[in-house]
C-alpha cells in the first residue's frame, strides 16, 4: 500500500485542487492583472512622472465632461432598463410552457446577435433617410427629416437594446424563486393587490434588482460600439475617448489615466455586484 512520506498527516481531498488553479491564475496574472497594473502605472508616468494626466482630466475641460456623460448615460440606461425590464420579467416569471419558450427565445436571440450589427441596424433606423424618419414624414408629423444621428437618442435606444436582456434575466431568475403563496397570503390578510405587490413582492425581488442594476451599470460604463457609431463627438463616452486617445492621438498616458479612472469606478460596482450576488460571481448571468 503506497504511503506518503509523512504517514501521520491525514489525507485530504482538497490537497490537489489548489494546483488546478495554477494554470488559470498564472494566465490571468500575465494577461489580465499585469496589463491592468501597467495601465494604472502608465497613467502616472507617461509622458512625465506625476499627476499631469489627472490634472488634465479633472481640470475643467472636455475630458471631465466625457466622464460625467459616461456616468450619466450609464445611469440613465440602467434606470430605463430596470423600468422596462421589471414588468417583462414579471410576466415571464409567471409564463409557462410554450409562451415561456417564445419569450426566452426573443430575449436570447438578440443576445447572440453581434453588437456591431445591432448598432448598424439602429443606424439604419435613425439615419436621415431611415425608417424612423420615413415613418414620421409619412405620418405627417414632421416636414423635413429629423437629424437623430449623431446624438443621444440613438445611443440610449441602442444601449438599452443591448443591456435589456442582462436586466431581464437576473430579475426572472429571482422572481421565479419568489413563493407566489406569499402574495396570496398577503392578499388574504387584507392587503389589496397593489399593497401586496409593494410590501411583499417588491422587497423579495430586491436581490434580482440589485444584481441586474449592478450588472447593467457596470457594463454600460464601458460601452464603445454603440456610442462610437451613434453618439458622435457630441455624445462621447469614456471607452470611445480612450480608444481615440490611444489609437488616433497616440496619447497613451492620458488614455491610461482615463482607463484607470474607469477601472476604479467599475471595480467599485463590481465589488457591490459580488456582494449582492453572494460572492457567487456571474451566477446571475448564467444564460
Amino acid at each position: 500500500m503506497a504511503r506518503s512520506v509523512d504517514a501521520a498527516r491525514p489525507w485530504t481531498i482538497s490537497r490537489g485542487h489548489a494546483w488546478l488553479l495554477a494554470a488559470p491564475l498564472v494566465f490571468l496574472a500575465i494577461f489580465f492583472l499585469w496589463p491592468l497594473a501597467r495601465v494604472v502605472v502608465r497613467g502616472f508616468v507617461d509622458p512625465a512622472l506625476g499627476l499631469g494626466n489627472y490634472a488634465r482630466i479633472f481640470g475643467d475641460g472636455p475630458y471631465l465632461r466625457v466622464i460625467w456623460n459616461t456616468i450619466e448615460t450609464a445611469a440613465a440606461v440602467t434606470a430605463i432598463c430596470l423600468v422596462v425590464a421589471y414588468p417583462v420579467a414579471y410576466v415571464m416569471a409567471r409564463a409557462r410552457g410554450a409562451w415561456l419558450q417564445i419569450m426566452a427565445a426573443l430575449i436570447v436571440i438578440p443576445l447572440w446577435t453581434s453588437v456591431v450589427i445591432r448598432s448598424y441596424a439602429w443606424m439604419v433606423v435613425f439615419q436621415r433617410r431611415g425608417v424612423l424618419n420615413d415613418l414620421l414624414l409619412g405620418l405627417g408629423l414632421v416636414d423635413t427629416p429629423v437629424r437623430f444621428l449623431p446624438g443621444s437618442i440613438g445611443v440610449h435606444v441602442g444601449m438599452v437594446h443591448i443591456m435589456l436582456p442582462f436586466m431581464i434575466l437576473p430579475l426572472v431568475a429571482n422572481m421565479r424563486g419568489i413563493d407566489q403563496t406569499l402574495l396570496r397570503a398577503a392578499e388574504i390578510l387584507g392587503a389589496n393587490p397593489f399593497n401586496a405587490f409593494l410590501r411583499v413582492f417588491l422587497p423579495l425581488s430586491l436581490p434580482g434588482i440589485n444584481a441586474g442594476v449592478a450588472l447593467v451599470f457596470m457594463t454600460s460604463l464601458g460601452f464603445f460600439i454603440t456610442p462610437a457609431l451613434l453618439g458622435g463627438p457630441q455624445h462621447m463616452m469614456a471607452a470611445v475617448l480612450i480608444e481615440q486617445q490611444a489609437n488616433v492621438y497616440l496619447n497613451w498616458g492620458l488614455a491610461s489615466a482615463l482607463a484607470s479612472t474607469l477601472l476604479v469606478v467599475t471595480l467599485a460596482i463590481y465589488l457591490f455586484y459580488l456582494r449582492v450576488t453572494g460572492g457567487a460571481a456571474g451566477t446571475a448571468i448564467g444564460r
Binding site: A7, A8, P10, W11
Partner: peptide, 25 residues
Amino acid sequence: AGFVPPSAGRILVNGADIVAVPPYR
C-alpha cells in the same frame, strides 16, 4: 471513509492506521 481529514487521532483497520491513506486505497 477518508473524506474528512481528522484533526487528531488514529483509525486502525485490522491494526494498520489508515488516516494518511487516500480513500481509493
